[in-house]
């Protein structure tokens, strides 16, 4: 049943996202073509098409965020909710299907944005000397022991962090739904409330005995000036702080994972037991 929900979530979102991505890439290509074919000194069209491209790019990220909210709210908590919640499907499956697709589109949006920049800058990037330089930098970075570990940690943090953020939005909407009037305002309030609680938890979790080691290495035990001990003046110092950076990345992953579980439980409980469709 989860695969069927995913299929329909894909259909409902792809019809918006695919044309949007096409427009972004098309606009980037336009920019590229104008710089190739425009005569010297003919700059107005280039500027206009650049402004247009940036606007579209920003628009794409706005749509990604709006779609995340709208799919959850409209499909589950407005009139469509009568259909979705009478399907023989558990509430958690609805949450997972929305979450996976929202996450996927956010990542694809980032990939499309990078791709469009590459298109525009292709003349600069695809020169032999630039390509070889980029290659050198990359091989230098990955020659360093632990670079792969950093990459893995960073990717994990982005993924878990992203999931936690999306679930925080879902939990806020679900909490706002509990109120009879002014649901949107209540959702906004819930979002602010959950962010604040998360911030406080973040600080407190760092004070726990087991965590203190990880965090102190990063902050030097000084929370008000977290970067105080970090100086990139020499390679020695850089090597010295690396373990703390590992520690901090893992702290972030662990913390986001805990938030993910918490937000998921809140959302699932409200959709399962406290549903109150209009």
């Amino acid at each position: 049943m989860l695969s069927k929900l995913l299929k329909y979530e894909m259909k409902a979102t792809a019809r918006i996202f695919l044309p949007l991505f096409a427009v972004v890439l098309l606009s980037a290509t336009m920019n590229r073509l104008i710089t190739i074919f425009a005569p010297k000194g003919w700059e107005v069209p280039a500027v206009i098409s650049m402004v247009l491209y940036v606007t579209i790019l920003v628009g794409m990220f706005v749509v990604t965020a709006v779609m995340m909210i709208q799919r959850f709210y409209k499909n589950l908590l407005s009139e469509e909710g009568y259909l979705m919640f009478t399907l023989p499907v558990k509430p958690w499956m609805h949450i997972i299907s929305k979450l996976l697709l929202a996450m996927m589109w956010a990542l694809v949006s980032i990939a499309v944005a990078i791709g469009s920049v590459v298109i525009i800058a292709s003349a600069q990037i695809f020169k032999p000397e630039v390509v070889s330089q980029i290659g050198q930098v990359v091989s230098q970075i990955y020659a360093y022991e632990g670079a792969w570990l950093f990459t893995a940690e960073f990717v994990l943090l982005v993924l878990v962090g992203g999931i936690a953020k999306i679930l925080m939005v879902y939990a806020s909407i679900a909490v706002g739904h509990l109120v009879n009037n002014h649901k949107i305002l209540a959702s906004l309030g819930a979002y602010i409330g959950l962010s604040t609680i998360s911030q406080i938890l973040f600080t407190f979790m760092g004070l726990l005995p087991g965590m203190a080691g990880i965090k102190d290495r990063y902050t030097g035990g000084n929370l008000s000036n977290p970067m105080g001990t970090v100086r990139f003046s020499s390679a020695d110092n850089l090597a010295a702080i690396l373990p703390s950076v590992h520690g901090f990345l893992w702290y972030g992953v662990l913390f986001s994972a805990l938030l993910t579980v918490g937000y998921f439980i809140i959302t699932n409980m409200i959709l399962g037991k406290k549903l109150n469709l209009e």
Binding site: A12, N75, E79, E80, G81, Y82, L83, T86, L87, P88, V89, K90
Partner: peptide, 17 residues
Amino acid sequence: IETKRIVSYLPEKTYLI
């Protein structure tokens, strides 16, 4: 889930997608 499989429900709202 078990009861949803055997109950066909027409709400007063139009719930079509």
